[in-house]
Design a protein around this nucleic acid. Sequence first.
DNA 1: GTTCCCATGTAACCCGTTACATGATTTT
DNA 2: AAAATCATGTAACGGGTTACATGGGAAC
Lengths: 201, 201
Amino acid sequence: MPQLPTTSYAVLGLLSIAPMSGYELARAAEQSIANFWPIAKSQVYSELSRLEDLGYVQGSDIRQQRLPDKRIFEPTDVGTKVLDEWLASPEYETERYRSGFLVKFFFADRMPDEVLMKMLKDCRDSAASTLKMFEQLIASMAGNPDAFFRMQTASFGRKHIQANHQWAQDVLTQLDPSSKPKKATARKTATDRRKKGHKDE
Amino acid sequence: MPQLPTTSYAVLGLLSIAPMSGYELARAAEQSIANFWPIAKSQVYSELSRLEDLGYVQGSDIRQQRLPDKRIFEPTDVGTKVLDEWLASPEYETERYRSGFLVKFFFADRMPDEVLMKMLKDCRDSAASTLKMFEQLIASMAGNPDAFFRMQTASFGRKHIQANHQWAQDVLTQLDPSSKPKKATARKTATDRRKKGHKDE
DNA sequence: GTTCCCATGTAACCCGTTACATGATTTT
DNA sequence: AAAATCATGTAACGGGTTACATGGGAAC
């Protein structure tokens, strides 16, 4: 068996919790793993047909009167085996982090000061609102021991967003001496550097 | 001007610091932005020729006696303008986070307990070693005001890795009652749940 | 003598994203 | 009357990854 991309296992895993149609699966993914493994709606369908071709899931037609017919998918025995093998293998799983934000920030020397400040404030504020979302999510699962692992993934998200928020606030206070006047200018402003660096030799 | 992928701006930005050959650029990227925006060696070359076609960079042949010839690229005036426009635009930049680790962890109900514990320990330990790396990196830039932004990106990485580390340690202590015997079993073990859930209705 | 560094790429793959298409039904 | 929800997809694109190819000089 050729090893599948993580998305396949995610789909298998979600179907192992409850058999679902593609539509329902897409929604389930959106409400559960999307924060650390988003799956596009269209990808759900292509993934399902791949898994069907491999014999890892099977779909059954369900006719409905009011709504259009749907196909409910559930893992086959082989599919469940494949899933459990994946879960039992201690292999390192891909972690990808890419931040266009940081790329921009990395070159902030060339950036107008207002834009930089705005960027950081946006970063901080959006982190604050995402943080609230995570806290709600966690609260909704607190006290339910069956949701332990799900809750821990949310807790993971919360910790990371907190890190984001703290970082942005940190940088802001370091850049704006007015808010914390103890330390003098920790750095030359970007404008200073541009003036100096224009002919730098 | 059609908006370019972030990688293009990253390349332009690095070349704006110092003209470089493709080889040198790949190394520079590896040592600077790779932690939040990795660029494959091969992609460097394809990116450079794209930017050259667009007229954003120009390469000049440098002949060398001992080593093979190389082409030094530097941004054109148009290229610099494009870069600065990107930096001045306060548009939201793509942030992608994907963790196969968390996908696996999300389904830890189906996972053998030892594998789960090993996974978490690996997570914690690798975080610890990455943390050291970041701390070294930060120390190497401390006190240099010209490296302010670069240092802050490293600080960002450190904060996130710290979050990782704390999270893994948290979960470990919650799962292993022997280390912190105050709180009783915070959850049923995975094995318990499997026994119970085998025929669950 | 083999392995590492310099140096420059080509080719293929495929996952993930975005946009498009369709149509009935329920809600506002 | 319009918008949202239920439901299932197709098509195209492209960015990013991996693997492959080459070849000389330096270092061990």
